[in-house]
Design a protein around this nucleic acid. Structure first.
Ligand code: ZN
Ligand code: ZN
Ligand code: ZN
Ligand code: ZN
Lengths: 133, 133
DNA sequence: TCAAAAATGTTATGTTATTACATATCAATT
DNA sequence: AATTGATATGTAATAACATAACATTTTTGA
């Protein structure tokens, strides 16, 4: 039975990596993921990076550029429209993913103003979350 | 005669690194800077990274997180208020730094809504510049 | 079934950034 | 001038993040 999504079923390594990220409380680096999957037979970074590439492409996982780390998407729609922003607590490393349409629209207008053909946006906000003030 | 800015005079290595970035057409990685400064006696990455740390702290240089590279600030005021965004052309690697106050304000409100104490924002827009369409 | 495409395994290497420790420079105080 | 403390610099080694290249297996679909 085929999924009704445009995404294909996940392959074995993709599923292993995705599940690790789903279960994680915080973002994980590729090498942390590797270590967590040694028991499943993972032996080299490329096994993780290849799975991550696909998962990011599918919109199921996002890379946090300011942390060199990865998180599972907390929405259901990032396959279609990319996430607007991430708020990252520097104290507890918690991350919350925001889908603010007005922010996306603002960035789109900014690009238009400069005749810039916008393909991808990265917005990462660092600070302290409400639990860490 | 002291500068009227709050920034101290640049030290030798800081000035060398800053001048290289000022003259560069595109963002440079730390290791590219190292190679450009071998003739000036630079021998190790740390000489570059230490200078970059200070220059970033002074607001004279910004790190582009999505490129792992550095650019000289194109404004005079980034010591006070951080840059709003960077537009990065994926074709020609040109970068333009934007100081959009309404974007900064938008991000500030977004953080407030979530009771997030915002310390630093990273906004990097990728696509094609007007010369590369 | 068969060939093409995608996914995986493995080794080696490339790139970015930091740790640790030694030495030098500079400014303030005695 | 000598002492001190703070900042800056030099150097080697290593850690952390990411990709290249090539072989093999699995999946897909004609
Ligand atoms: Zn998402
Ligand atoms: Zn927190
Ligand atoms: Zn600036
Ligand atoms: Zn361009």
């Amino acid at each position: 039975m085929a999924s009704h999504h445009s995404q294909p079923e996940l392959k074995k390594n993709q599923k292993l990596v995705f599940d690790v990220l789903k279960d994680a409380a915080n973002p994980l680096s590729a090498y942390s993921i590797l270590d967590l999957l040694r028991g499943e037979g993972f032996r080299a970074p490329l096994q993780v990076y290849r799975a991550l590439d696909k998962l990011v492409e599918f919109g199921l996982v996002h890379k946090l550029e300011t942390l060199n780390a990865f998180v599972a998407c907390s929405h259901d729609d990032c396959a279609l429209s990319e996430p607007a922003a991430f708020m990252i607590c520097d104290a507890c490393e918690s991350v919350s993913e925001l889908g603010d349409a007005s922010l996306s629209s603002h960035l789109g207008k900014l690009a238009n103003t400069e005749n810039f053909a916008l393909k991808h946006t990265t917005v990462e906000l660092h600070g302290r979350c409400k639990n860490c003030l």
